[in-house]
């Protein structure tokens, strides 16, 4: 009598099935992360994207990443005006803020600010740097060679 009222013992197979299903689902999510999620986490927008989505962005603040076009830097007392390029697109940047050590022609930069007409008004300027290290030559040799 009492035996039948006791809850049934969970079969081990059921746990195995569960682990298999979980593993399949996890693998699917990982695969999906590698393919789909790449555009999800956006720290910065490349110049080409920022330029093509200029009207949609309005005057909202975002970060734009690109390379300083050689010969376009005009420093002022409280910042600098320069152009950045990426993916064939160029944008004029009006930066007001402190100077940066590594800011110069061909420097890879991130500017934080918003569009004001065709000019990007930036309040912050960050310098990215590459993953290559060398004692004798600069990492931006390609940019210099292609533009000069």
């Amino acid at each position: 009598m009492t035996d039948t009222q006791l809850p049934p013992v969970r079969p081990k197979q059921r746990m195995h099935l569960r682990y298999t299903l979980a593993a399949v689902a996890c693998l699917a999510i990982v695969a999906w992360m590698f393919t789909e999620l790449r555009g999800a986490v956006v720290y910065l927008r490349p110049v080409s994207y920022a330029v093509s989505h200029r009207s949609a962005q309005g005057t909202r603040t975002f970060r734009m990443g690109g390379t300083v076009v050689p010969g376009t830097i005009a420093k002022s007392s409280d910042g600098a005006r320069f152009e950045v390029m990426e993916g064939g697109a160029k944008a004029q940047v009006d930066y007001s803020g402190g100077p940066r050590d590594l800011f110069r022609d061909c420097a890879p930069v991130v500017v934080e600010g918003h569009w004001a007409g065709n000019v990007f008004t930036a309040s912050r300027l960050l310098i990215r740097h590459g993953s290559a290290y060398d004692a004798s030559k600069r990492a931006d040799a390609n940019c210099r060679a292609s533009t000069s």
Binding site: M33, F34, V41, Y43, L44, V110, L126, S131, Y133
Partner: peptide
């Protein structure tokens, strides 16, 4: 893998 998947300020692995 964050530096390879997404656009970050941090550089990719050397």
């Amino acid at each position: 893998f964050s530096v390879n998947w997404w656009q970050t300020l941090h550089q990719t692995g050397t």
